[in-house]
């Protein structure tokens, strides 16, 4: 039953992301809701469930992007595994530690996607690269508490 709810949450978050209202965009940036969900799964569920639904969240994101590479599917799987390893080494009971992890993962994920875009020959002014890297990561982190609460409730 829980797994069905996780799947439903992925569909709802993907739909929300696809229909994110313009007036909620911050400097033309929208938050990465699926990334927050992937991180929160590692904290509130067992590793296998987190990895499976993390990869599914990445796949849901890639399906609606205009690229042929499944960068998010691969990255989300790797992030799930790395967060699991880190969460065994450090205490994640404090909220700010979880938010710091979301910020770090969002920065890394955006950096890799941006770098891949630039490496494939796309022209992107440095200002826009930095805007996407920093603003998206900060906006994603700002919304993390909401998604964390949702995941906690489903996982409980």
């Amino acid at each position: 039953m829980k797994k069905l709810f996780f799947l439903l949450t992925i569909i709802i978050l993907a739909t929300l992301g696809l229909n994110w209202p313009n007036f909620l965009n911050f400097f033309y940036c929208k938050p990465d809701l699926l990334l927050i969900f992937m991180v929160s799964l590692v904290f509130y569920t067992d590793f296998k469930t987190a990895l499976l639904f993390g990869i599914l969240a990445g796949l849901a994101k890639d399906v609606f992007l205009p690229w042929t590479l499944a960068m998010n599917t691969v990255c989300f799987g790797i992030w799930s595994y790395l967060i699991y390893l880190i969460s065994r080494q450090i205490s994640t009971e404090e909220d700010y530690v979880c938010w710091a992890i979301v910020l770090a993962v969002a920065l890394l994920n955006n950096f890799i996607i941006g770098l891949q875009s630039v490496a494939s020959g796309n022209i992107m002014p440095p200002g826009i690269f930095l805007r996407n890297l920093i603003m998206v990561s900060v906006y994603t982190t700002a919304l993390a508490p909401l998604i964390f609460k949702l995941t906690k409730k489903i996982a409980a």
């Binding site: 569909i11 990869i55 796949l59 399906v63 042929t68 499944a70 960068m71 599917t73 799987g77 595994y81």
Partner: peptide, 28 residues
């Protein structure tokens, strides 16, 4: 094993796109 599965999924990403978009279309 997981990494191989993920890589396989990423290789065949295009085959996931049509059914996924079909599922999402009505509520979108």
């Amino acid at each position: 094993l997981v990494a191989s599965a993920v890589l396989l999924v990423s290789i065949f990403l295009s085959s996931f796109k049509n059914p996924a978009q079909k599922i999402f279309k009505p509520h979108l």
